[in-house]
Amino acid sequence: MNTILQVERLTHTYSVGTPFQRSAVEDISFAVERGEFLGIIGHTGSGKSTLIQHLNGLLRPTAGRVLLEGKDIWAEPKKIRNVRFQVGLVFQYPEYQLFEETVYKDIAFGPKNQGKTGDALDHAVREAARLVGLRDEHLDKSPFELSGGQKRRVALAGVLAMEPKVLVLDEPTAGLDPAGRENLMANIRDFHRNQGTTILLVSHSMDEIARNANRILVLKSARILMSGTPAEVFARGEELLAAGLDVPQITRVAMALRDRGLPVDPAVYTVEGLEAQLLALKRGGGPC
C-alpha cells in the first residue's frame, strides 16, 4: 500500500473559550492511497468543509496531524504554501474566485505563485486548460464573458495548473444543469484515469459519489459514520437513511424490491447493476 495523505486523530474546535465553542471535526482518522478516488459525503455542517481545509493547510488542527507523503504538513509552518501546491483544493462555486483580465492569466496565477516562468508556465497553463476541455480560443477571452459552466472549468484549471499530487474538489457540479454536471464529471474521471492524480470528491449527491468514487467516507456530526467501498456503504442503506442522508435512488428501488420479497443484492447502486440482477432473476437464474 502506498499512502499519500494521512489524517491522524484530527480535531478542529472553533471559538475556543467562548460560549460559541464547538468542534467542527472531532477525532477523525483516515488514510488516502495514491491514485485513489475517494468520495466524502455528509450534510452541511457535518464537518466536510472544515476537514478539507486541513488537507492543504488552510486551517491548522486544534489537535491531531495531517501527513502528506509521511511528513507532517505543519512541521515547517513557513513552508505551508508548498503543501497548497501539492494538495490542490477547488472550493464550491469556484468561478467566484476568478479575477484576471484573461482566462490565460487567471489559470497562470497558481503556477506563477509556485515560481514557474517562461515555457514551464506556458506549458502548465495550456495543459491544464486542455485537461478541463477549454479550447485555445478561450484563453484570450475575459473569464467574465464565459458561461457559468466554462467559468467553473477555468477555476478548476487554475488549480490543476499547479500540478497537484492530490486534488480535493468541493461540490464541483453544484448548481450546474444535468448535461453540465455529467460533462464536468466525465472530465474529472478522464483526468483521474489519465494522470493518476489522487482525487477527493466532496458531494451532496449520493448518485454522483456512487458513480465515481472507489471508496466512500461518510461524515456525520463532526465524526466518521462509516467508510468503505460504495457497495459496502450502500449495503447499509437503512442506516444512511436513519442518519438523514440520501442513498442512491437505485439503492432505494433495490430496498423496496427486497421488501417485496425479491432476492436482489442490497449493495447495488447503479442502474446497470440492478438491471443485470433483475434480468438474471427473470431468466430463471438465482440471485447473482
Binding site: 481545509q53 492543504n56 488552510l58 504554501r81 497548497r84 501546491f85 490542490g88 483544493l89 477547488v90 472550493f91 469556484p94 467566484y96 474566485q97 476568478l98 479575477f99 496565477f109 497558481g110 505563485n113 509556485q114 487554475g158 488549480v159 499547479m162
Partner: peptide, 30 residues
C-alpha cells in the same frame, strides 16, 4: 475568496507595502 486564493498559493502576509497592496487584487476584484 481569501481561502480560495490562498489555496492557489496567494501570499497576503509577506512582502513590502506595495506587494501587499497588489496581493489584495485577487480578493477585491471577485
Amino acid at each position: 475568496i481569501m481561502s480560495a486564493q490562498k489555496a492557489r498559493g496567494a501570499d497576503f502576509e509577506s512582502g513590502n507595502l506595495m506587494e501587499k497592496a497588489r496581493a489584495l487584487v485577487p480578493i477585491l476584484v471577485p
